[in-house]
């Protein structure tokens, strides 16, 4: 049926009176696609891993353009815990970008990690969860989840583990990562303060004699301080960041969650 009514006359076939007749339909208004399935809900997240802990943080503002949708929309989610509050979870996912995709991604990863536990009788390792998350994102690369994800937990040696992702699943284990609206403001700060970029040993000389300061895992209170400073600064300079700071600190004792106010302007 479709072949008969496929439109253009048979290849090379004549049949019509004039050769000059248009062979393709004019492209008019009907052609264009008016629906764009994404939006940016603003906000920022960051994660830093230490020797025996990982911290994930995100602001709680949700925006649509210049509007604030709500002052409390969490971007940090416990993954694979028990019950509606995800008790005893050991993995945290943070998502920033398009919030609906973020929620959908969170829900998928959460059910997968839970199913893993039910089927294998043990918790999924952070490394396995990290790779699984990459696959979820990559599988949808032609219609991506428009989010920057950061996954945090403790690795099998008990060290802080932090993985960061692009929207189509490329991922890497890092010491620290900032994502979202204020990533460009926070990341250079973290480079300098966590990985000691552009910091040198005092008195090591000048020029080529300069000795780069060697990065080492930072203590927990230092890291918490860094996170707070990073966000209070970002709030000053970025309109999509503010309202509240949600932090999750993953240690061998579990996940400790805090919520502190940020400026609402």
């Amino acid at each position: 049926m479709a072949a008969i009514f496929s439109g253009a006359p048979p290849q090379g076939g004549p049949g019509y009176s004039f050769n000059q007749t248009p062979r393709t339909a004019p492209s008019g208004l009907r052609q264009h696609h008016g629906f764009y399935p994404y939006t940016d809900n603003g906000g920022s997240t960051l994660g830093i891993s230490g020797a025996d802990f990982t911290i994930l943080a995100g602001d709680t503002r949700s925006t649509s353009g210049y509007n604030i949708n709500t002052r409390y929309a969490p971007k940090l989610f416990k993954i694979g815990g028990e019950g509606p509050d995800n008790k005893n979870a050991r993995i945290v996912l943070s998502v920033v970008g398009f919030a609906a995709d973020g929620d959908a991604l969170k829900e998928r990863l959460d059910t997968i990690v839970k199913m893993y536990k039910y089927q294998h009788g043990k918790e999924m390792s952070v490394a396995a969860c990290a790779q699984r998350l990459s696959h979820i994102l990559y599988n949808k690369r032609f219609f991506p989840y428009y989010v920057h994800a950061i996954l945090g937990g403790l690795d099998e040696e008990g060290r802080g583990a932090l993985y960061s992702y692009d929207p189509v699943g490329s991922y890497e284990r890092e010491q620290c990562r900032a994502a979202g609206a204020a990533a460009s403001l926070i990341m250079p700060f973290l480079d300098n303060q966590v990985n000691f970029k552009n910091q040198y040993e005092p008195g090591s000389g000048t020029g080529h004699d300069l000795q780069a300061k060697v990065a080492a895992p930072l203590p927990r209170d230092t890291v918490e301080e860094l996170v707070r400073d990073a966000f209070t600064s970002a709030v000053e300079r970025h309109i999509e960041v503010g309202d509240g700071l949600q932090m999750m600190i993953i240690t061998r004792d579990g996940i400790q969650e805090t919520l502190t106010p940020l400026k609402q302007d």
């Binding site: 049926m1 479709a2 008969i4 009514f5 496929s6 439109g7 253009a8 006359p9 048979p10 076939g13 049949g15 019509y16 009176s17 004039f18 007749t21 248009p22 062979r23 393709t24 339909a25 004019p26 009907r30 052609q31």
Partner: peptide, 30 residues
């Protein structure tokens, strides 16, 4: 015309090519 494909359709030489997007055979749903 002797081509059955052309029967019962507006003549292209008179009306121009038919806009098949109205017919929606292989096109994606609108």
């Amino acid at each position: 015309n002797h081509l059955p494909q052309a029967w019962g359709r507006p003549r292209d030489d008179v009306y121009g090519a038919y806009d098949h997007s109205h017919f929606q055979t292989q096109l994606p749903n609108q």
